[in-house]
Write a protein that binds this DNA or RNA. Sequence first.
RNA 1: GCGGAUGUGGUGAAAUUGGUAUACACGCCAGACUUAGGAUCUGGUGCCGCAAGGCGUGGAGGUUCAAGUCCUCUCAUCCGCACCA
Length: 817
Amino acid sequence: MEYQSQTIEKKWQEYWKQNNSFEPSEDFTQEKKYILSMFPFPSGRLHMGHVRNYSISDALARYHRQKGKNVLHPIGFDSFGMPAENAAIKNGSHPKGWTYDNIDYMKNEFYSLGFSFSRKREMATSDELYTKFEQSFIIDMYENGLLYREKGMLNWCPHDETVLANEQVVDGCCWRCDTPIVKKDMNQYYFKITKYSDELLDDLKKLEGGWPKQVLTMQDNWIGKSNGLAFDLFFDDESKAKLNGTFENFDVFTTRPDTIYGVSYTALAPEHKIVTYMIENNLLDEATIAQITKMKNTSSIDRQKEKAGLPLGLNVKHPLTGKIVPVWIANFVLMDYGSGAVMAVPAHDDRDYDFAKKYDLEINAVIKPKDADVDVSSAAFTDSGVLFNSEEFDGLNSKKSQYNIIKMFEEKELGKKTTNYKLKDWGVSRQRYWGAPIPFVHCEDCGLVMEKKENLPIALPDDVEINGEGSPLENHPTWKHCACPECGKPAIRETDTMDTFVQSSWYFLRFCASPENLEKTAFTPEEVKYWMGIDHYVGGIEHAILHLLYARFFTKVFRDLGYLDFDEPFDKLLTQGMVLKDGAKMSKSKGNTVDPDEIIAKYGADTARLFILFAAPPTQELEWNDSGVEGSHKFIKRFFDRSQNVVKTDTIPKIDHSTLSKEEKFARKKVYEALSRSEEVYGERYTFNTMIAGVMEAVNALNTQTNSDVWSEGYWILASIMEPVIPHTCWEISNTYFSLNNLSKQIVLEEVFVEDTIMMGISINGKRRGEIEVAIGASKDEILSLAKEVVAKWLEGKELVKEIVVPKKLVNLVIKG
RNA sequence: GCGGAUGUGGUGAAAUUGGUAUACACGCCAGACUUAGGAUCUGGUGCCGCAAGGCGUGGAGGUUCAAGUCCUCUCAUCCGCACCA
């Protein structure tokens, strides 16, 4: 029989569907594995990145199923989001119809690739049931002070007409459409993720070993914890008078208190409240105000190009020396970090230095290298060192003096030790239609009121006009009008919807819910206790910060709300590399995409899966290569074709190893080597490419002999090992010859590795000069004398200095002269 | 600038603890079978050299009997963060 991918693949896909082959058991006494790939956005069609993602998780799922584990390998769709609305604007489709059509199409693609997902647990986050539970969680979070509404300067994307979280601003532009963002003052809902800053940071330690180092570092940097000193700078009397007595002081933060005697000016962010006050009260001349306004309206990228600022005509007193220090506005001071004001030590900070040089401000060095003088004539000295010109702290090193100076500030109540974070609260409201409505109501009498849980879900109206102008919910004629849940009077429903990252922050918990209970609860404590944490989470590195940080945050919140009792959701994280073509990431705009459907039609799903897992280890980039795909296809054909040598059997053949020929023994050894390598690969290393290479070697070795028992045993095992990679082919072979009995746990027979003789390399001074075959029990002397014979011509006339025998590996002879 | 990686044949890549560098595959070359081959099978293929031999894991040193692997320095590429006080 010739290999017909179409026939075989259709046959088994249908079989798996009919037999519910991949549904997890509800028996919680069994050992479980929860294997999850990051769920996709239903963009329309699968791309190769998806195929790679799910090929990896499917291989792991199928492997553990063979091992007898209770495997949860679910799939869903992250189905709210802007592209559905953009499609609506572009071609008049309805976001809902567009989304669910895409889901249907993509589901078919998934099953045509043979992925072993639990069909009963399929879901989409835009399902009303999902929204219902999510809104309920939101209410809980609000009640517990983890969600709040506040007016603030927000990142606004003028193109998408919506607010963005700090995390969604990339290089000052919208992460989705690349439009430069502007700041806008408006009301917004926030999750209090900063409450968990320390825990999110500290628990990264628990993930070491399970998560890639790079991701841990990225999260660490993102949280951006830094320790230092915060203290107040007081205005002199003249400045106080200028400010009409409204401000006495402002506070600053520094991580380098050791440099404090070098302060020669201070700087405020242009958005600082003192600056705002001065502008509003006409304390600055028009030219200055114009400059400040211009500075504020400059994008963050442009602001970075050159340091700029201007003096405010105010002075503060140095907290230790009492010296008068001028106050400036500087464009490099960020309003949203620390207090939006800094003490400037140009001698020991690059930014302060540039600024001081530009405006000819004092540069006072107070730190010098341990055994040298400091020179700040051309650049700041930013290393730590030894203090001088620092009164009582002279001669101390930076570290020691930091401690002492903070202590002194605290004793004199001038300031205190402080920790700052880059992490900000997560702004979650979006002025869009296709998202989960935020379940609140604005009542004139009662203020902001939560919706009652029995009224959930607050579902989206279907009859909306989506034209890209404003918020469709805001513009809807009736939807927002409702009765206040508290007093019953007419009120206005919140028209903002939630950031889609809210849905992806808990979907993995929803998958734990038994299909029987879907209507009743989001999930039960027993269900999540059994299935979580996720044993393997597979996805792209692009989610290293946003999604993974938010999901960790939600897990901790849910723990504190009593829904679950663990700290971290993802035990092991596998970040797959990108799929490239011609050296660049596959993308429609570059026109270098390969359509999975076409590959399936031409070669079959198994070929696509094999190529993807064989061409590179999963964490590395994968270069798409058409002839490589051909090669994978050829191997499957050959593997299928050679199965003719197998004799039908329901149990693995028993073979007396001692009676076999050399080739037969070798073939068995290769088969079992492939098996033991597969254990390592599926269990811990995930380098599927090496495992597949091992199987290819085994097939090559089987091909050098004709013993039908050896063939049958070999295929019994190889079809089992390869089933997670090329499931259709392996089920076909296993069904034809083994009644599927071989798709189960395999046992490594150590006897096949026992050999009578062994090859050893001979090297002289570390250079390979020959090899010998020695009996397995040969003594060191026997080995040495044999080795010397083989390399006799190299030893002639030389003095033998040392002899090293590494058992079963090699002999190294050291010679001189 | 800070942080994280990665550098091995013509190509994708192996080498688990320092122990025969280049497994497996692609490509290429030769042969077989074929009306034909972009099918299939068999063999060859790191580089230089007729050979003996020499040289080879980005580069330079070092440790070791032995280094792709460990140490020091350096170069290149990729990714992330980036005026974070």
